[in-house]
Design a protein around this nucleic acid. Structure first.
Lengths: 201, 201
DNA sequence: CGAGTGATTGACTTAGATCAATGACCGTGG
DNA sequence: CCACGGTCATTGATCTAAGTCAATCACTCG
């Protein structure tokens, strides 16, 4: 799902690549917003800091994902982008993109579709956080992240990453997964999780 | 915050209104995606079903909210939209919107900006949910929802609504607000909340 | 072969959910 | 015009699930 395959040659040609070491910043809050990005390899976390300097993850951009889209319509970045592992990102100058949108409405539409899909994912995530119970939350996540068969989830990161993504402590996640497996609601093999046909309510 | 005020007359004129009783479906998974919607009154749940017919909520659309934007770029709806109370929605035919986008790139860009802003808001919301402490969570919300002076928040709904929005029980919110006021971190007059200059970390 | 990280489980603590009661306010219908 | 039912705001008491601290094991990497 390389998000920007649809881009016209002119824009793609003007893009560049930037490599980042673990912990390195792609941009910082307040920097001039000149580009949007696509993760080619690795993973970046968009983080903001609370008043007491506590880092909070806004989003984890994974391989193939587009991020910092809002930069197109803002003059400055509103958070930090930090590589959480050795990564490579493709850099799309926003001037190029905007003029491509004006040139060809189909390109603009394609981009809108990507944004709409992002909104979808984020809303689902917020809804997930509304679920108090760890068990139900995990099940909700597994259902939505399941592949075509509607039952199988292939974890792409560690369980620690997953815990952060769904807003649980790692311990709570481990315990919940163990309990779900013991109760027969799921089965695990390595980094694959399969929901049982009839997962009790 | 009627999201679509920027719409050209032609599109606005072509919109219609649909009333729904509690439990009534606006659309179902697999239906032809012909429109996007705005909640004028009430509340709708976007739900998907697991293999074993268990409902999973993707999103709850509230008053003033735009939803099913992804329908613009898909041929069919991918979930059910069910009124969770007596509701009224405004219906925007997607043909009209799409042709407006093609006619005028500025309109398309404006829409993109709205989508990007949505993504922004949603990320902030997810960030908020990452804050465990009720006190910090409420403060965070107040900071982000503060008006131009950066300190004053005018509540638009009830405290119960606010509690739901930030993911706390109403009681927890009442208590937290009371504690914040007692400690001098905020001041309240009716539905106005003002942050103190130096809110301790 | 240590150091570092991920996965896992146990023990303990606590913050927030839940249940419950009360008062203020408001609209409504008899 | 007032009593009644409903909702909102508020506070008290209690309970519990998830966070936190801690220890162990497996594995990889330099």
């Amino acid at each position: 799902m390389s998000a920007l395959d649809w881009l016209p040659e002119t824009v793609r040609k003007r893009s560049s690549v930037r490599a980042l070491e673990t912990g390195e910043a792609l941009f910082r809050l307040g920097d001039q917003a000149l580009s949007i990005f696509e993760v080619e390899e690795g993973r970046l976390r968009l983080v903001r800091y609370t008043i007491d300097s506590h880092a909070v993850t806004l989003h984890t951009a994974r391989r193939g994902e587009l991020f910092a889209e809002a930069a197109l319509f803002a003059s400055r970045y509103r958070c930090d982008a930090i590589a959480s592992m050795s990564s490579r990102v493709r850099v799309y100058p926003k001037r190029e993109l905007l003029s491509a949108f004006r040139r060809d409405p189909a390109v603009a539409e394609r981009f809108m579709a990507i944004l709409a899909q992002q909104i979808h994912a984020l809303r689902a995530r917020v809804e997930e956080r509304n679920i108090r119970s760890a068990r139900e939350r995990v099940l909700h996540h597994l259902v939505l992240s399941a592949g075509i068969d509607g039952r199988t989830t292939q974890l792409d990161g560690t369980l620690i990453d997953l815990a952060a993504e769904i807003g649980l402590s790692q311990e709570a996640l481990y315990r919940t997964l163990a309990a779900l497996e013991k109760s027969g609601a799921i089965k695990r093999k390595g980094s694959t999780i399969v929901l049982a046909k009839a997962s009790a309510a």
